[in-house]
Design a protein around this nucleic acid. Structure first.
Lengths: 212, 212
DNA sequence: ATCCATATATATACTTAGTACAAACATGAA
DNA sequence: TTCATGTTTGTACTAAGTATATATATGGAT
């Protein structure tokens, strides 16, 4: 997160950010499938190969927060208060993210355009699903570690799967609320209501396991 | 499911099946990404364009049961006994599918190769996720209809999401059991154990809604 | 049987994402 | 200044998928 000192790294980061910004802007403007990599390269004033150098796949320019999100989740679970249950820890994380206006749970006109751009493209939807599955993996491993079990603990799989499903639905519902009301506060409320409802259910569902 | 009478339809079906069989065989043999559409066309003794005529995407040759699976689910929910709860209905469906040796819940050396082929290819994994999401949509709509609510019922979304997550994990766990034991009966048992455990949890999670 | 409308199959030519490789260029340290 | 290394870019390629036109087979008509 800190800005690196040497020129090389700063330039590198600037180039990367430049490409990502230009690309994301074009994708939102005209739709992912109607923008070619050549156009992005031209608009970012960079060679075509430079684009692929930073972003192996076209989709990666759009989902650039990706790895940062996984790391955030891992950190939250690593630094948790052991006296609070895991599902409760993640419920509280959701509340904190809303309070802190985390970009991962933003419900605004801007994020609305972002989501709509995804919905209009099969490729972007596919990548979004892949990211979700990767998150489920991260949560599975993190949960297993938290209770000191092997990484292949079946209960952890189930807990993580149900957790991710809950978050996804909370996210979707909150966006629908925003679409209907154009009101960020209401959307935030919807998000937390679904998270709370889901968490209560999950505690019941995982009763008898260390995750509850 | 019935074989159509006129020659045209029969030929059509035969061509389609031929392409799908040849392609699936090649994919399993050499890996999805190491087989080109040209090779498939040559092996199936048809023109390249004929392949794309039947299967818009390369992946579709591999996932050919796709729509039939959605229809089966819809039917099961449509013809349910209204005195039995929805989650319970689906739990019983799982048990019946295992008893009937449905190809959708097969755990054998053959299905093992099928799954491994998917795991080795990002493209196939992406399509598998898409199919899962489409199933979640089908279940959401079907659940909503069963309790006579609008299609956008938030509880139905949550129930369907949790249900699909449970089934996915049951499927994955059962396959892992098969990989370890090479024993179909044990894998079947694992599948049903996870389904039962998940269903019990889901009933608790959805308590207070019509889906429980 | 012959002929025609329609369905199916295929050829050609194209666009675009992504890869392999090599050459040009910039940076920072000696 | 000079050199090793990191970064950028050009060229050439593969393969999926699309558009369009053409050839061929089918089933029903006379």
């Amino acid at each position: 997160m800190s800005i690196p000192s040497d020129l090389r790294s700063r330039k590198r980061l600037a180039t990367r950010q430049g490409i990502s910004n230009v690309a994301t802007h074009l994708f939102i403007e005209r739709g992912f499938d109607h923008v070619t990599v050549d156009e992005i390269a031209a608009a970012a004033d960079v060679g075509r190969m430079t684009v692929f150098n930073y972003f192996p796949r076209k989709e990666d320019m759009f989902f650039d927060l990706d790895e940062a999100g996984r790391e955030m989740l891992r950190e939250a679970l690593r630094q948790r208060d052991p006296s609070i249950s895991l599902i409760e820890t993640l419920r509280l994380l959701a509340h904190r993210m809303i309070a802190d206006q985390s970009p991962y749970v933003e419900f605004s006109a801007r994020s609305q355009r972002f989501i709509e751009t995804i919905e209009k493209s099969e490729t972007l939807k596919a990548r979004a699903r892949a990211i979700r599955d990767e998150l489920a993996q991260v949560v599975t491993v993190a949960l297993s570690e938290c209770v000191g079990r092997t990484a292949a603990d079946p209960d952890a799989y189930l807990a993580a799967g149900l957790l991710l499903a809950t978050w996804t639905i909370a996210f979707t519902q909150a966006h629908q609320t925003f679409r209907e009301t154009r009101n960020t506060k209401e959307a935030n409320a919807t998000f937390l209501v679904v998270i709370d409802k889901g968490s209560t259910g999950l505690k019941a569902a995982m009763a008898g396991t260390p995750y509850s």
